[in-house]
Structures are given as C-alpha cells and as structure tokens.
C-alpha cells in the first residue's frame, strides 16, 4: 500500500476517499480523482495501491493500470516534491522549449523522464503534450500552476521560489 501499511485506503485518506466515492453515481467514476490525490500525496502510484484501489472501487487492476499509464499526470516512478512539466508540442517547441528543458535539467541535476527525483528528492521533470497555453509559449506546469512566456532568466527565479 501507499506507505507499506497494507491497507487501502490508507487511514489518513479513508474519509476523504469515501467522500469522493459518494459524490458519483458509479464507484469507478472516483478512479481519476482518487489517483490524483494518491499522486499528490505519495508522488507516485504503486502497484499495491493500484490493486488496492481496484478492489476498493470494485474494478480490476487491469482497468486501473490502463488509466494510470494513459495519463501523463500519473507516474509509477516516484517524482520529486516539486514536479516540473514542460510542454514540448509545436508552439512551445518553436519558441525554445528544448533550450528551457536543458536549463532545468542542468540546474536541478535531474534528467527528464528519468523517473528519478533530484538527489534531495525535491525535483523531477517530465515533458509532454500541449497544455493549451499556446498563446503563451513556451509554458510549463510547476506543480499544478501553469506559467507562460518563460524565458531562460525566469528558470532560476522559478527554482529559487520553489526552494523557498
């Protein structure tokens, strides 16, 4: 299970998950909202959690795995506390996403898609599909905040703010 205590949902999330399930006419409708909370809480989704969640929602591990792998917001490898998601689709690509990626990678000491967080577990990077902010290209998603019109100078600033 999430942190290895063998129960799903984990005690601290049980009431919340029960609440999510109660919101929908069908149990499986709670799948994505719960996966999002698990991702946020533990920075990854484990096989044990997928099995546990499948049983909790009366569905199959196959169904849960299909959903987890379909959406890039979910990760089976542990991400950093802060996750940086760079758009690499057409507009951002043309406006320098490649260069920004190298900068982020260099400054944080972590490779995109490596699945590894940086040495201190603080940061991880992924690239992916369009964020829908083409008019503000290039853009990134820092945790769940979208930031547009990024320049190389802004990279340092973003990192500093995150480091607090």
């Amino acid at each position: 299970m999430a942190e290895g205590n063998g129960v799903f949902p984990p005690d601290n999330l049980k009431a919340e998950f029960d609440g999510i399930v109660a919101r929908y006419p069908k149990k499986t409708a709670a799948l994505i909202p719960i996966l999002m909370r698990l991702q946020e809480e533990f920075q990854h989704i484990t096989t044990e959690d997928m099995d546990g969640l499948a049983a909790y929602l009366d569905t199959t591990p196959a169904h849960v795995l299909g959903v987890v792998t379909f959406y890039t917001m979910f990760s089976q490898k542990k991400r950093g506390k802060h996750h940086i998601y760079l758009c690499k689709t057409l507009s951002c690509h043309i406006r320098g996403a490649e260069e920004l990626l190298s900068l982020f990678e260099e400054k944080l000491g972590v490779k995109a898609h490596s699945g590894d967080a940086s040495g201190d577990g603080e940061f991880s990077i992924d690239t992916g599909e369009c964020l829908g902010l083409c008019e503000q290209a290039p853009c990134v998603l820092v945790d769940d905040q979208a930031i547009g019109n990024i320049t190389p100078e802004m990279v340092d600033q973003i990192i500093e703010e995150l480091r607090g």
Partner: peptide, 20 residues
C-alpha cells in the same frame, strides 16, 4: 480473468499483463 490490458496511449500504446 482480466489479466491483460492496454497501457499507455497513442503510438506508445501496448498490451501488458496487468500489474506485472
């Protein structure tokens, strides 16, 4: 026995054994 499933999406989609 739903042992196989589709994982990933788009041109990366493939068949996998559910949860290893």
């Amino acid at each position: 026995n739903e042992e196989l499933c589709l994982v990933e999406r788009g041109d990366h989609e493939e068949i996998a054994v559910a949860n290893g």
